[in-house]
Simulated scan of single mutants.
Amino acid sequence: MPIPQPIANQQTVGNIGMFYVCYRLSRLGWNVMPTARNAKGIDIVIYSQDAARKYTIQVKTLSKGSPVPMSNKLDHLFADFVVVCRHVIRETPECFVLTPDEVRRLIHRGEKNGKISYWLQPRDYATDEFREKWERIGSGL
C-alpha cells in the first residue's frame, strides 16, 4: 500500500470526511446534499428516494485516530446523527455513527486555565457499537 501524502490543511481534511460520508450514504440509496461549509452543526442533509424520510448529519473528521474536539459548548449538537470519520488520509477511512444523545453521554469535559472544552475520546466512540453502523441511519431506498 502506498504511503499517503500529507494533507494540506484542516479544511481539506474536513472536506475528505464530509465527501466520504456523502459517498457512503449515496451507496445506501439516500439523496445526499452537503450544506454550505460554514453552516452551524449540519454538514449533510439526506432524504429517501420517496422523500418520506429526511435526516441531518454532522460529520467530525480526523486525519488520525485522535479525540474528537467538540468545541467549548454543546449547543451545536442538533443533527439527527453525528458521524465521526477518522483516518481520512488512509485509502479507506473508518466511520462511527452516533446520535447526539450518545455523544452527550460519552463526551469528556476538560478545563485548562479557566477555559472549558469538550472532547470525544477514541475509547468511547471507536467501539463496535458505533463502528460502520450505517444501518442505524438505514437505507434510502
Rank of each mutant, 00 (worst) to 15 (best):
R109K: 14
R105Q: 11
P67S: 14
I16G: 05
V97C: 09
V32S: 08
I116Y: 00
H76G: 08
H76E: 15
Q58H: 04
N9W: 03
A39R: 13
V68R: 08
P6E: 05
G29E: 01
L141K: 06
R136W: 03
V21I: 15
V83E: 09
Y55W: 11
Q10I: 12
F81K: 02
T99C: 05
S66I: 08
A126N: 08
A36C: 07
D128I: 12
S117P: 02
K64P: 00
V97N: 08
P2R: 05
F96I: 13
P69L: 02
L28K: 11
E111Q: 14
I42E: 04
G65F: 13
N15D: 15
P69M: 00
G41K: 12
Y125D: 07
F81H: 04
P34Y: 07
A51S: 02
Y23V: 00
I7S: 02
L74K: 06
Q49R: 14
N72A: 11
G114R: 02
N113H: 13
V68K: 06
T99Y: 00
M18S: 09
V32K: 04
L141I: 02
F78Q: 01
T35V: 09
W30L: 06
F81E: 00
P6D: 04
F130D: 10
L62Y: 04
L25D: 05
V68Y: 12
Q58K: 05
V88I: 06
I44Y: 03
I46C: 11
K133L: 06
S66V: 08
E91W: 01
L28I: 00
D50C: 08
E102K: 06
F130S: 10
L77V: 07
E129D: 12
K54F: 04
R24F: 05
C85E: 13
K73D: 09
